[in-house]
Computed example of a mutant assay.
Amino acid sequence: MTDWASLLVPAGGVLLGGIVAGASAMWSQAITQKATHRREREAREHAFAVKRYEIDRDSLLQLQEAINAHYVALIKVATSLASDTLLMEYATYRMNIVSLANRVLDPKVKQSVIAYLEAAKEDSEDSGTEVQPAIAASRAHDAIGRALARDPFFN
């Protein structure tokens, strides 16, 4: 009986050591994979944020150009007899502004662009002065400039 006991104790120790070593290796690998997964997820989120910022920045720049073109068309409509092509150009610029404003993330920019479009619509219907649309366009450009100047990665 003592021969079996003397064989079982070392074999049991080796078996228990193998189980503990295997479990600790699996545990450390799981922790490493979890950390790696978290870093990869953060990298994907950062890459998405960078891409979203680039899209928003491009939309803001295009929106500035569209407001400028729309305002020039508004002045042409207000100061001359509106031809069909000029009215179509004016409407196209307006639709472009609405489309671009919907892509922008900043709610202040959206509000200022809507205010500009409403002022321009009232002015084109009244055929009055361009003062209100000019002020609204200036406010829209100011909001766009503030949105462009803001660093999205530094809160």
Results as ranks from 00 to 15, higher is better:
residue 125 E to W: 00
residue 9 V to E: 03
residue 109 V to E: 04
residue 135 I to Q: 12
residue 47 A to S: 14
residue 57 R to C: 11
residue 55 I to Q: 11
residue 138 S to N: 10
residue 40 E to I: 10
residue 138 S to C: 07
residue 119 A to C: 07
residue 134 A to Q: 11
residue 105 L to T: 15
residue 112 S to R: 07
residue 65 E to G: 08
residue 6 S to E: 14
residue 81 L to P: 11
residue 10 P to L: 09
residue 15 L to D: 03
residue 103 R to N: 04
residue 35 A to C: 04
residue 128 G to Q: 02
residue 154 F to P: 00
residue 1 M to L: 09
residue 47 A to L: 12
residue 94 R to K: 13
residue 126 D to K: 10
residue 125 E to G: 14
residue 33 Q to H: 08
residue 97 I to D: 02
residue 88 M to F: 03
residue 135 I to A: 13
residue 91 A to V: 05
residue 50 V to R: 03
residue 132 Q to F: 00
residue 23 A to F: 05
residue 73 A to K: 06
residue 132 Q to P: 09
residue 137 A to G: 11
residue 127 S to N: 08
residue 36 T to K: 14
residue 127 S to F: 01
residue 128 G to N: 03
residue 25 A to D: 02
residue 88 M to N: 12
residue 75 I to D: 14
residue 114 I to Q: 07
residue 98 V to S: 10
residue 120 A to I: 12
residue 99 S to K: 14
residue 89 E to D: 07
residue 62 Q to K: 12
residue 91 A to L: 07
residue 6 S to F: 05
residue 48 F to L: 12
residue 9 V to W: 00
residue 11 A to H: 01
residue 30 A to F: 05
residue 5 A to T: 06
residue 27 W to N: 11
residue 130 E to Y: 02
residue 121 K to G: 10
residue 27 W to T: 15
residue 18 G to S: 09
residue 65 E to C: 06
residue 3 D to S: 10
residue 39 R to K: 13
residue 122 E to I: 07
residue 95 M to W: 04
residue 127 S to K: 08
residue 152 P to S: 02
residue 31 I to W: 04
residue 140 A to H: 09
residue 71 Y to T: 14
residue 56 D to K: 08
residue 11 A to W: 02
residue 26 M to F: 14
residue 129 T to M: 01
